[in-house]
Simulated scan of single mutants.
Amino acid sequence: MPHFTEDWSTGHFPHWQRLFFELLGWDPTAPRRIVEIGVFEGRGTLWFLDHLLRHPESRITCLDTFGGGAEHLPSQTEGLEARFRANVAESGAAAKVEVLKGPSFEGLVRLLARGERADLVYVDGSHEAPDVLADLVLAWRLLPPGGVMLCDDYLWSREEAARVDILGCPKLAIDAFTNIHRRQIDFPLWGYEWQHAFERIG
Rank of each mutant, 00 (worst) to 15 (best):
F20M: 06
F48T: 12
R32G: 14
L172M: 10
E78I: 07
F40R: 07
V88G: 14
D153P: 02
L150W: 09
M1Y: 04
E71Q: 13
P144I: 00
L23E: 03
V123K: 09
R182D: 06
G202T: 05
P130S: 15
V164E: 03
E36T: 11
G146N: 14
S9W: 08
L100V: 05
L136Y: 12
L120C: 12
D186P: 07
W16D: 02
A95L: 02
R158H: 08
I174D: 02
F198E: 11
V121A: 01
P31I: 00
P188G: 03
L150P: 11
L73P: 05
A197K: 15
G107T: 08
R114V: 10
T29H: 10
W47G: 01
G68T: 09
A86Q: 00
E6I: 14
D119E: 11
R43S: 01
D152N: 15
C169D: 01
G69L: 13
D64W: 11
E81K: 15
A129Y: 09
L24Y: 05
E41P: 08
L23H: 11
F105N: 03
C62N: 00
S157L: 07
E98D: 14
T5E: 09
L172S: 02
A82Q: 15
R114N: 04
D64Q: 11
F84D: 08
L111C: 01
G102Q: 05
H72F: 15
E193D: 13
L63A: 06
W8F: 00
R85N: 13
H51M: 03
L53S: 00
W190R: 08
W190E: 01
V137K: 00
P56M: 03
P56I: 05
H181T: 09
P145A: 04
E81Q: 03
V99W: 07
L150C: 13
E22N: 00
W190F: 14
E199T: 07
P56G: 07
P74N: 11
E106T: 13
S104R: 12
R200V: 02
I60P: 14
E6Y: 10
G79P: 07
D153W: 12
D124C: 10
L133D: 01
G168F: 10
T61E: 14
G107F: 15
K96E: 12
E71L: 05
V148T: 13
H15P: 02
L80P: 05
L138A: 12
G147F: 06
V137F: 15
P144S: 10
E98R: 15
L19T: 06
E36H: 03
R141I: 01
D153T: 09
A129S: 08
F13A: 11
F187R: 01
V88Q: 11
L143G: 04
W26E: 10
G69P: 10
T45C: 15
T10W: 13
F20V: 10
V123G: 06
V109R: 14
G68F: 11
F177S: 01
A129F: 04
E81N: 11
I180M: 06
H12G: 08
V109C: 09
P130A: 02
A162R: 11
Q184T: 00
T178C: 11
L73V: 10
E36V: 14
P28G: 02
